[in-house]
């Protein structure tokens, strides 16, 4: 079975809300694909459709070339963390994993293995209702890893985690992709994916905004601009604008300059006797690139679509 996800012309309506509107993308094996869009963009709906939980009105979602509902033991093909809070509060964590293992024909030994993998050994015998959010995320990830699946999906896995937890999940996601698995991870915050994802599927209002690599997106957003730090910000901006540059203040002493090469910026400032402490090639953050992208996408705005997520 191929390790990939393919979504084709997906459309899903809940009442009067069009949650997913003709969405197509693929998640290839061996890398982490970020699934990004504001809250309500249709990420969770798309994931639920991939898992056969909700039926699409149109289009198909295939996992390894097959529809999820046709899989006999799906947890061996796809592992997913949709909602870490979805546990019975008084069932012990180990039992939560045990029934899933039994449903997939996996040995009890596998439960202990994934508990060790996520570092929940000391809590496995306790009811999941008393778990912190971070522990629940780990339990949810253990459940996703139970069947050692070639395809993995995580919906907002770092939501509400402390920095240690975030770092742990990032490293886990990267190592899973390095093992050749297809990993889809959603987030409504671009920055969360900056160090994790290789590839991005950006959606808004249920539609694809772009499908691109993180590197290409950053390069396009940086666009040869220059970052400048100077104590004479206002004067510098006047001079540079006069020379035909597009300038934008990004802080009390920082300016982003577009349309002029770095040498010309330095020359202009020197000619006018304006001191500066730093001139460097501007490196856009993923967040900036995202804003740029969604501005270019025209009709797409970051407003949440009510009722869907």
């Amino acid at each position: 079975m191929d390790a990939d996800i393919e979504v084709r012309d997906l459309r899903k309506r809940y009442g009067s809300t069009l949650a997913v509107d003709g969405l197509s993308f693929t998640v290839p094996p061996g890398r982490v694909t970020g699934f990004v869009g504001p809250n309500g963009a249709g990420k969770s709906t798309t994931m639920r459709i991939i898992l056969g939980l909700d039926a699409p009105d149109e289009g198909v979602a295939l996992v390894g070339g097959r529809q999820y509902r046709s899989l006999r033991t799906p947890l061996r093909h796809v592992g997913a963390l949709l909602d870490a809070a979805a546990v019975h509060p008084s069932r012990r964590a180990a039992d939560h994993l045990l029934w899933m293992a039994q449903a997939s024909g996996l040995p009890r030994r596998r439960v202990d293995e994934v508990i060790g993998l996520v570092g929940l050994e000391s809590a496995a015998g306790r009811p999941a209702g008393g778990f912190s959010l971070g522990m629940r995320q780990r339990l949810g990830i253990a459940a996703a890893l139970l069947g050692d699946p070639p395809v993995l999906m995580f919906d907002e896995p770092v939501n509400g985690l402390d920095p240690d937890g975030i770092r742990w999940i990032r490293e886990l996601l990267r190592s899973l992709a390095a093992e050749g698995r297809a990993v889809l991870v959603s987030s409504h915050l671009m920055g969360e994916l900056e160090d994790t994802a290789d590839h991005l599927v950006v959606i808004g209002r249920g539609r694809l905004v772009t499908e691109t690599s993180v590197g290409a997106l950053l390069a396009a957003a940086s666009g040869g601009r220059v970052a400048l730090r100077t104590s004479h910000r206002t004067e510098a901006m006047t001079v540079l604008a006069g020379a035909g540059a597009t300038v934008a203040a990004t802080g009390r002493e920082t300016v982003t300059v577009g349309g002029l090469p770095t040498e010309r910026v330095i020359a202009l400032l020197s000619d006018h006797g304006l001191p500066f402490s730093e001139v460097s090639a501007h490196r856009a953050s993923l967040e900036e690139a995202y804003m740029e992208l969604t501005r270019d996408a025209g009709e797409f705005t970051a407003a949440a679509v009510p009722g869907a997520s």
Binding site: R48, L51, G52, R69, V78, A80, A85, H88, A103
Partner: peptide, 18 residues
């Protein structure tokens, strides 16, 4: 109903789609 209340029903149906 405890599965519908907690959202666990989605894990159940993900593990056993029939």
């Amino acid at each position: 109903t405890n599965e519908h209340a907690s959202g666990l029903i989605r894990s159940t149906l993900a593990a056993s789609p029939s």
